[in-house]
Computed example of a mutant assay.
Amino acid sequence: MTVPAFETIFAVPMTCQSCVKDIEGSLQQLSGINKVTANLQDQLVSIQGTAAPSAIVDAIQSTGRDAILRGSGRSNSAAVCILESHASHVENKVRGLVRMVEVAPSLTIVDLSIRGLSPGTYHATVRESGNISEGPESTGGIWEALTAKKESRPCRGIFGTVEVGKGGVGAVFLDRPIQIWEMIGRSIVVARQQDGKVGGDYVRVFDQD
């Protein structure tokens, strides 16, 4: 799928005009950057173009500053999901965040970061239900899994995988053909097994704003 030009907004700590120049200079070296606008007062950097958010973050971090995806400049275009551990056997306290920003009709950027899990490959899936009273078991099946199977097309509820390293930290940028409003009232499960059945380290989503 050809990605149209879109706007993403990042929160970046900046103290002076030199900070702005450093960031703009680093971003202009990326392909797919059409326009960079930095707001020193609000500590925000707006980027228009087709560059991947992961590349943008890397470019900003190369200047010694952090960058957090905040939105797309349009109302009702962003959602945030808080990840917390549910499995009693997970020794470390698991914490994570899924930021979703709709950058074009039916195209949403997913920024998932997590820490506290044991090393390995984990699957992130959107579930039919937002009921987390019993953890992953009460969230239902993977969203649209049956419909996608009948129509022989990719399942939109399968977000992708995230690799967790030895330090227990994992992060990934993905793009999915979804709209933010479709996520409201659902949940996200991050587990070793894609179906989220017993046998993995579970993470659940509490809120989608």
Rank of each mutant, 00 (worst) to 15 (best):
M1F: 15
V3S: 10
P4F: 10
E7F: 12
I9N: 01
V12R: 00
M14T: 00
M14F: 01
T15A: 15
C16M: 09
C16H: 11
Q17H: 10
Q17Y: 10
C19F: 11
C19E: 10
V20T: 06
K21G: 03
E24W: 03
E24S: 05
L27A: 09
L27D: 07
Q29A: 15
L30E: 12
G32E: 14
G32A: 10
N34E: 15
N39F: 14
L40C: 06
Q41R: 15
Q41V: 13
V45P: 03
S46D: 05
I47T: 04
I47A: 05
Q48C: 04
Q48K: 08
Q48G: 04
G49W: 03
A52T: 12
P53H: 00
S54Q: 09
A55I: 04
V57D: 01
D58R: 11
Q61R: 08
Q61M: 06
T63A: 00
T63L: 00
G64M: 00
G64L: 00
R65F: 02
R65V: 01
D66I: 04
D66V: 02
D66Q: 12
I68K: 11
R70I: 08
R74A: 14
S75G: 13
N76P: 06
H86D: 11
A87T: 13
S88G: 02
S88F: 09
H89D: 15
K93C: 14
R95C: 09
L97P: 06
R99Q: 14
A104F: 03
P105G: 04
S106H: 09
L107R: 02
I109M: 10
L112S: 05
I114F: 04
R115L: 03
R115W: 03
G116P: 02
L117T: 02
P119D: 03
G120L: 00
G120N: 00
A124K: 03
T125K: 00
T125Q: 02
S133E: 12
S133H: 12
S138E: 08
G140E: 01
G140I: 05
G141W: 06
E144Q: 15
A145G: 05
A148K: 05
E151A: 12
C155E: 06
R156G: 11
I158C: 09
F159Q: 10
F159K: 07
G160P: 14
G160A: 14
V162C: 06
K166D: 14
G167V: 12
G168I: 11
G168W: 11
V169W: 08
A171R: 11
F173A: 02
F173E: 04
I178G: 05
I180R: 03
I184R: 12
S187N: 09
I188R: 04
V189L: 07
A191H: 14
R192I: 03
D195Q: 03
K197V: 05
V198F: 12
V198Y: 10
D201M: 03
V203W: 01
D207I: 14
D207P: 05
